[in-house]
């Protein structure tokens, strides 16, 4: 609460929500925003998964090889462990594929729109450039590779 006669500006920043909720604003013609949110979420999850992975790969040292072999044997069909692998595959495949696209765009300045004379209906060149095609390829490949990964993991 501001004091009497005192005026205060409202800080109107959505903060971290803008990085995790792709629908915080209604942005037409902007699938790049969804890709950004997914890339951020999958990046963070990959760090967490890395810890889980390190913990699991140290079990032969802490619990012995028998436990390790037992766990691997149990990962057949649909179990919590194979489900976890399946989710991990989805996360890693998206992050990797989209990561390649981002490397091209952000580091090499490739696939973005060339400067041009804007004309009605005033759609920025980058939204029509080949990075958009790449993004659709990333989404399509992601689903295909994830399904293949699921087939391999569950059978």
């Amino acid at each position: 609460m501001a004091g009497k006669g005192e005026r205060r500006f409202l800080k109107n920043m959505p903060g971290w929500r803008a990085s995790f909720n792709p629908w915080i604003l209604r942005l037409p013609n902007n699938p790049e925003r969804l890709a950004f949110v997914l890339h951020r979420i999958t990046g963070i999850l990959l760090v967490l998964i890395l810890f889980v992975h390190i913990t699991f790969t140290t079990t032969p040292a802490t619990r012995g090889w028998e436990f390790w072999v037992e766990e691997i044997k149990r990962a057949q069909g649909i179990t919590p462990v194979t489900l976890y692998f399946f989710i991990f595959a989805g996360i890693a495949i998206f992050h990797g594929l989209n990561g390649i696209r981002l490397l091209l765009v952000e580091f090499l300045g490739c696939c973005v729109g060339k400067p041009e004379k804007p004309k009605p209906p005033y759609i920025s060149a980058t939204l029509r450039a080949s990075q958009r095609t790449l993004l659709y390829i990333v989404f399509a490949l992601w689903i295909v590779l994830w399904m293949i990964a699921g087939y391999i993991i569950f059978t």
């Binding site: 790049e32 765009v105 952000e106 300045g109 490739c110 729109g113 920025s124």
Partner: peptide, 28 residues
């Protein structure tokens, strides 16, 4: 600091394409 969400380019009323400009700047 840019992560190329390209929302800037999506809302720009003049098709200035700030998102594209930043990637060119960044690669340069």
């Amino acid at each position: 600091k840019c992560h190329f969400a390209a929302s800037c380019s999506a809302v720009c009323p003049k098709a200035v394409d700030p998102g594209g400009a930043i990637q060119m700047l960044r690669s340069a």
